[in-house]
Amino acid sequence: MKKILFKTEALKDTVMSYCPGCGHGVIHRLVAETIDELGIREKTIGIAPVGCAVFAYDYWNFDVTEAAHGRPPAVATGIKRVLPDRVVFTYQGDGDLIAIGTAETIHAANRGENITVIFVNNCVYGMTGGQMAPTTLIGQKTTTTPFGRDEKIAGYPIRVCELLSSLGGVTYLERVAVTDAKNIIKAKRAIKKAFQVQLDKKGFSLVEVLSSCPTDWGLNPQEAIEYIEKNMIPYFPLGVVKDKS
């Protein structure tokens, strides 16, 4: 019999602490599979954010460092500049990446830092209990937008890939979603491409992954997937936003 299922070496054998239906677990796995397939586990340094993925170093089976909230792109810059032959990636939520860490994100991208960013967009601050994020949709209820996000008060959800696409240092941007098998395969392909861009020394790559947060959205896992399809994807269209690799 042919063996078709392998243990992902880049993932540790532990139970993850994510809620049922949360997208983080799937995305962790896609990153780990990519790292195994590219054979780069032993030269990869990952950066866990402050957010729900803060414990990522307990799950990934390679070198992982913590970084302060929003600062992963700066930490990645420091690592990559002194160890240019290692693979360096950040894994960041929407609050981390485009609220508190906006400056670090834009400038690492603009410098064309040869790093990969896995950006998990779940339209909400997960870890702190469901507050509004920069990507929270208009009308979406969160604990700090109890009447739904009102653009007159809170502005508009930020489309990160489109925002970054004009920057000279940016090589590859794609938005994907982890909703069904088809989209998950596409997500994996995009993540692999992003790491390949780094391996080819071509500059800054970012994959935005639309992901569910059933707990903070107040939905069950199935409804949460539908929420992504019905509400998020129309505002955050899937596909390659920039590719100059």
């Binding site: 340094i45 460092t65 970084a67 302060a68 600062r71 700066a74 930490v75 990645a76 810059t77 420091g78 690592i79 990559k80 500049r81 002194v82 160890l83 400056a103 670090e104 834009i106 400038h107 410098r111």
Partner: peptide, 22 residues
Amino acid sequence: RVFIQSESEIAAINMVFGAALT
């Protein structure tokens, strides 16, 4: 060697953090 004019002092110290951990 490495020189970067960072986007802020916050970024600069976090770059030190990154370089130091290697």
